[in-house]
Design a protein around this nucleic acid. Structure first.
Length: 307
DNA sequence: AACTCGTGGGT
DNA sequence: TACCCAAGAGT
């Protein structure tokens, strides 16, 4: 038996029942799930994914609306730039690929918000191709089971892709199944802090298990602060803008954070990222929500019309 | 290569 | 309580 065989056998009995794994899920549904799952736990993604797919069943549906609607629907999933990139991704899919999510890896990787992991995940899980799909779970599993090390590097390297590809069965369909199985084992069994080695399909073959499965003492990654950072301030500002119907006066943003310098920097960052647009000197809206002025056939006065 | 970018649940 | 960490991408 191999790691892949054992992983597939385990997955067949233990896989979570997630909506984006249903056979009827489209490639767009898979892509949306993968972007939402970037750094966000499954339990929070699931309801958001259902709402999103109900409102925008195809890339063209999303592309037809302004980015502001995507940012609002994103809710509190975190890292809202992902919402904007997913919108840009939908637009690109319509423009470059006629509204169909491409099945070619190079074309996938060229889409906004689609990187090394997400591109391969879509090619593999939506289209059944054979690619190494390497996320934090897979890096950890391979690091432990194959290399005997308690944890892997912080990001995916070219060497990681090669190491994982070496584990994949030659058969395309089996390789795709092994990839989702490796991820699931990392998410459910071979977890970062409290691995459940006694129920792991790799228990007897695991190189790390053989060494006594010692976890490193300190934090393996650098501490991730939040309180008091620009990220927190951006979150507070965006929360106000998400719930606003019309333009938001600067004064309403001023009250969310006392430090003028930091607040201004955070707001400028949101504008720089394209999440927020200034409207005149003293008002702000989510990207795409600016009322457009259009000429009317009744005369010269500009009239604000929502488009 | 190192850094930024949200949010919330588990321990 | 504070800290860890979660299907990463872009610069």
């Amino acid at each position: 038996m191999t790691f892949a065989d054992d992983a597939i056998a385990w997955f067949d009995r233990n896989a979570r029942d997630l909506p984006w794994r249903e056979p009827t899920t489209t490639a767009w549904g898979v892509l949306v799930s993968e972007v939402m799952l970037q750094q966000t736990p499954v339990v929070r993604v699931e309801p958001a994914w259902r709402s999103w797919m109900t409102r925008w069943p195809t890339p063209a549906d999303l592309a037809a609306e302004p980015p502001s609607e995507a940012i609002r629907m994103w809710g509190r999933l975190g890292y809202p730039r992902r919402a904007m990139r997913l919108h840009a991704c939908a637009v690109a899919i319509v423009e470059r690929h006629g509204g169909r999510v491409p099945d070619d890896l190079e074309q996938l990787l060229a889409l906004p918000g689609v990187g090394t992991y997400t591109g391969r995940a879509v090619a593999t899980f939506a289209y059944g191709q054979r690619h190494p799909v390497v996320d934090t779970n897979v890096r950890r599993v391979v690091s432990r089971a194959v290399e005997g090390k308690p944890d892997a590097g912080a990001s995916t390297t070219a060497a990681d892709l090669v190491a994982v590809e070496d584990l994949l069965p030659a058969d395309e369909a089996l390789a795709a199944r092994a990839s989702i199985a490796f991820m699931e084992i990392g998410a459910i069994v071979c977890t970062a802090r409290a691995p459940r080695c006694t129920v792991c399909p790799f228990e007897t073959a695991c190189a790390w298990r053989a060494t006594g499965e010692k976890l490193p003492e300190g934090p393996s990654r650098k501490p991730q602060r939040y309180a008091g950072t620009d990220r927190q301030v951006r979150g507070l500002l965006l929360e106000v803008l998400r719930h606003a119907h019309g333009p938001v006066p600067r004064q309403r943003l001023d009250v969310v954070w006392p430090d003028d310098v930091q607040r201004a920097r955070a707001l400028a960052g949101l504008v720089e990222d394209g999440l927020v647009e200034p409207l005149g000197a003293e008002n702000f809206v989510l990207a795409g929500d600016a009322p457009r002025t259009a000429p009317t056939r009744w005369g010269g006065d500009d009239q604000s019309i929502r488009v």
